[in-house]
Design a protein around this nucleic acid. Structure first.
Lengths: 246, 246
DNA sequence: GCCGATTTGTCCGTATGTATC
DNA sequence: CGATACATACGGACAAATCGG
């Protein structure tokens, strides 16, 4: 879960309502939405609230606003052939969003202390107590992603392989009541390793690279509690984005 | 150019000022910024304006806001080893932001009409008149990116190889006075082609993949005027992102 | 080209809710 | 509990862009 709960804020309600109307193609492509003034009346709220909902749709790439003209629908339904990446979400959440069934296998679960080498690429200080996990994610029974997770032990006490095979984020948020705030991600392309080859059933004569997403994730205490390297099969990897020119 | 002009809006001025203060490390890592109330007084504006500036810093991943506590600085200066991708920007803009010198070579410049095949992956309707370009981008005299551009001829009249070797976006914005609004991007990993191998001086026995960014770009008339496939050398590719959990 | 109506953009002030300390 | 700080929401004023007459 994490983001599919019933919102209680007006602007979120309006945002979700408009978003669904757009997805259901109640507005045709390139059509202008009702004016802010009209929406104020239909939803019975202030103009600021409407504008806040619309600005979220802009960052989603659903609409574009044009001063003096209106708000134009530019939503295009996408074909969901491969695994798409969105905001901060667990594998289970992504799988659900992509309308697929996911399964996770824990390959390795151990405790370790950050040495010089680990520190250099996880950014955890030398000497930090960590959980290290290797997990294999299946989508529709095909192994697609292999994850190397480093969790700050002091922030994630009581982690077990059992929990790791289900959903760590669920455990963090609902059992430990941690609030996950933001995640810095870097995407690169790297050479395939023997581990990749073995577990993802890949042939180095075919693709010899992986799509790699490295992320540093922070909670509301401001501590970086997770470093993860996600290695994706290149033929099933897809990252979507909408950029706005300022 | 495009985004480095002097802003005249208050919220943008405040945003840029705070951003620079953070980059200059006038606030230490994890330190709380002055409260909104304080900032209202120092900048002499309303609280809404302050909040707007701060919300931009949040999406940039510079700070995190914590209800009841304050606004925490989580900015970390990044090492700029490879070519990073930001919002919608031209190659020249990116190169400047990465403090590198760029050069562009036009490999191919032609006019063509979209057939069935082109239409399927550019989304331009069959029969559309297009400019097709192949361009090679050098960074510090190393060929790193090869671009396949399709421009809508009716929206980009008078395009020449001369302009293409300089900056097309500069031409669009300053000569044609087009307003570029947003760009839908998809990142994937694809097999290397003979063209990649030849122009980027790559060896298929080494990396046999490319980082590929495909983008559909829209202007303020709501027309998709550009489809571009950017093929990056995997060893120099880096895409950064900050995701916020909702 | 001008003018007025419409529509979005910016900015302000205020009130109330909610989380932290 | 009170003080502080951010979050939500409202209403109003004026600017800037678009469009039709």
């Amino acid at each position: 879960m994490g983001s599919d709960t019933m919102p209680k804020n007006k602007y979120e309600l309006i945002y979700k309502d408009l978003k669904q109307k757009i997805e259901n193609e109640e507005f045709s492509y390139q059509e202008l939405l009702p004016s802010e003034h009209t929406l104020v009346q239909t939803y019975g709220c202030s103009r600021n609230t409407i504008r806040r909902a619309i600005s979220q749709l802009v960052t989603d790439g659903y609409v574009q606003t044009l001063q003096g003209k209106g708000v134009r629908n530019i939503f295009r339904p996408v074909e969901q052939t491969s695994f798409t990446i969105g905001g901060i979400e667990s594998f289970r959440e992504s799988a659900a969003r992509n309308h697929q069934t996911g399964r996770t296998e824990v390959l390795c679960f151990m405790e370790l202390t950050a040495d010089e080498k680990i520190s250099r690429w996880t950014d955890f200080p030398v000497g930090t107590e960590l959980y290290y996990l290797q997990r294999l994610h299946y989508l529709d029974e095909k192994p697609l992603i292999i994850n190397h997770n480093y969790f700050l032990k002091s922030a994630v006490p009581g982690l077990t392989p059992e929990i790791a095979s289900h959903s760590i984020y669920d455990y963090l948020e609902h059992t430990l009541h941690m609030t996950i705030v933001n995640s810095r991600r870097v995407m690169t392309v790297e050479k395939i390793t023997q581990i990749d080859e073995k577990y993802l059933h890949m042939d180095a004569n075919d693709y010899n690279c992986m799509a790699v997403v490295s992320s540093h994730t922070y909670n509301s205490d401001g501590v970086m509690f997770e470093f993860t390297q996600s290695r994706h099969r290149p033929d099933y990897f897809r990252f979507q984005d909408n950029a706005v020119r300022k």
